[in-house]
Amino acid sequence: MTEGAVVPEELGSADSYEDWLRERLPVRGLRGKAAAVLEVLLSQPRRASFGSAQELAQLAGVNVATVTRTAQALGFAGWPALQQELRARYLSSLSAGQVAAEHRGTGSPSSRSLRRDLDSLAVLNRRLDESVLLTIAEAMAAARHTVIVADGSYAAVGLALAHNARLAGYPVRAVTAGDAELANAMAAIGEGDVLIAISFWRLYQSTVLAANEARSRGVRVFALTDAASPALASAAEQVVIVPAEGEAFFPSLTAGIAVAQALVTQLAAVDPARTGASIEAAEAMWAKFGLLHRRPTAGDPS
């Protein structure tokens, strides 16, 4: 399967940029100046995705305050939060080559990439709801097993999370090797288990299918993504929105790794005695197998 596989039609309804935006409308819709803002969002997705609130206001013939109120009417804290998801959804509608074209700029590509990652981490730090991470960590701690579904380059986030969660003393497995392994994992999953779906940019079909199958089996499902598809969001108890825009034609995993690290740190704090015992057992086994080039010194290092 190639990165960004298309979600099957039966799970991808209301998943286009326009359908998603219209699904966010309040019951009575938007009127007057707010409706003018909505029209710009629908008719000029690129400019809405990359422009400032002031630019959007000028296009709609309104003031910036109206842009903010429109974003709030659509269920967001304000324009920056709405634009983050608009942009992720707009980019997910493009091919890899088109995404790369959107990110052409002046200066060093590597410097631009680093700056974008720093910006994404700042956004994540401002908007991440820590109570959601606590909910996921407590669910993992109470679960019989936790299965992390992460394919393609996103597997890096899943593998890091699973590795450190096991070190913390919990039965966590990352499924990253393809559809056969995932199908076998889903056949064994059931009530008392947790599934964490990790996917950015254009979602993997198999990830969405796994999340929905797990939910139908009574599994607690959580998702880490940059713009949740309705098919994925409806299966998940909680969705953690993670900035994932890169500077080239592939998504950045920096913020995703940061969330995985924050989550496993929270998990380790759920039962410190269990985690401490697990780490001590691992240290003993590392020493027995001679794994480490530098070994800890016995006694007080001071």
Rank of each mutant, 00 (worst) to 15 (best):
Q261V: 15
G105L: 09
D300L: 05
E280P: 12
Q54H: 06
N212C: 01
S206P: 14
V149G: 00
P296M: 14
A187Q: 11
D117W: 04
M140R: 08
F249M: 11
P26V: 02
S302W: 10
E18S: 12
G32L: 06
T254H: 12
S131I: 09
Y154C: 11
V219M: 11
V27P: 10
W20K: 05
G61M: 00
N125G: 12
A236K: 06
A60R: 02
S131E: 13
G61W: 01
V175R: 00
L224H: 08
T254P: 03
A81I: 06
E138H: 01
G169Y: 04
I241V: 15
I279D: 14
G107P: 02
F222V: 01
D300S: 04
R217W: 02
K33G: 06
G290L: 05
R294M: 06
F249Q: 13
A88C: 13
V242Q: 04
A88L: 12
F222T: 00
P296I: 04
R217N: 02
R274M: 04
P272E: 04
G97Y: 11
G97Q: 13
S206H: 15
Y170M: 02
W79A: 11
F222R: 04
A35S: 08
V99K: 07
T297E: 06
A183C: 13
S216D: 14
D193Q: 02
P251D: 06
E9R: 14
V99W: 09
F50C: 05
L224M: 06
G29F: 00
S234M: 13
E138P: 04
L21Q: 12
N125V: 11
A160R: 15
A187F: 12
T254E: 13
E213V: 12
R115I: 03
Q54D: 08
A14H: 10
D300E: 06
T297G: 12
Q72N: 05
S110C: 10
Q238F: 02
R274A: 00
A139K: 07
Q54C: 00
W79N: 09
S49Q: 08
L86Q: 09
R166E: 14
G4R: 09
V175F: 01
L94N: 12
A269R: 07
V242N: 04
F222M: 07
L86M: 01
V240W: 04
A168D: 05
G192R: 07
P251N: 03
P8Y: 15
E85W: 11
V270M: 02
A160M: 14
R166Q: 15
P171Q: 03
Q58K: 12
V147Q: 14
L86V: 05
R166V: 14
L253M: 11
F250T: 09
E191K: 11
N212D: 10
A156S: 13
W286L: 15
A268W: 08
E280C: 11
A162D: 05
T2F: 15
A36I: 03
I196M: 01
I241A: 14
A227E: 06
R144D: 10
A244H: 05
V99P: 03
S199M: 01
Q72M: 00
G4Q: 03
M186F: 10
S95W: 07
L82W: 00
A34F: 15
Q205E: 15
G246S: 07
I148P: 02
L209C: 10
P296V: 00
G299N: 03
S110N: 13
V270W: 09
A165L: 13
